[in-house]
Design a binder for these strands. Structure first.
Lengths: 102, 102
DNA sequence: AATACATATAGACAATTATCTATGTGACGT
DNA sequence: ACGTCACATAGATAATTGTCTATATGTATT
């Protein structure tokens, strides 16, 4: 996983409104109009956030007629979790040579 | 965990340079001057990123004489992981009533 | 085909963020 | 005390992002 991709993934979680949207989706799949009712944003702004969430693969969309249904992607969330583990796991193989005293 | 705090935590991970800094810290505690050698940023810019990382509690700092040593905070990382789990766990108690056909 | 509806896209604008240069602060070493 | 070193802070600026209004697109329904 390169730095760029990791940054795109976690962008999903670094805005308050996107966090709210994700929380709303915890109760299951919802269409944009439902999300719109529950969040204080205009329709294009919601659409913008949904794009960022989908690009991060944290959310997936499913089109059905006029509606677009969004849901949390188990696969995407798993990848985010793995990414977080990978980033935070100490690498004990590395010698910790320091230029300055400890 | 409120939305605002969650957003602050994940801001740590939504910038490429901060991801690089975190990766550098995987090999253990490092002072700012060491990080500076390994990353293509000016000293004040690095300092700016370290503040964001510390505010997110993903990194902790330890002052010793002239130097500031930074390391990954196990506690902070644990909290981020828990936050991610909490955000992504489906809430099965909720009925998934929909205004529009599925 | 005409209309209505759900959502996306375009474009403008304001807020936030990332970056830099310049300078301040505090801790040594001489 | 003075200079030097490590780092933080201030302030400017450019890039990015979040938000809005207006409009386009695609899908039913009549």
């Amino acid at each position: 996983m390169d730095e760029r991709r990791a940054a795109v993934i976690f962008k999903a979680f670094c805005d308050e409104n996107r966090i709210r949207i994700i929380k709303l989706l915890r109760s299951g799949e919802k269409c944009a109009c439902e999300l719109l009712e529950e969040i204080n944003l205009t329709q294009p702004t919601l659409s913008h956030h949904m794009k960022i969430l989908c690009d991060a693969e944290i959310v997936v969309s499913r089109k059905k007629g006029k509606w677009t249904h969004y849901s949390i992607s188990e696969k995407g969330v798993k990848q985010a979790k793995e990414c977080l583990v990978q980033l935070s796991t100490l690498d004990i193989r590395c010698e910790n040579k320091s230029c300055c005293e400890k």
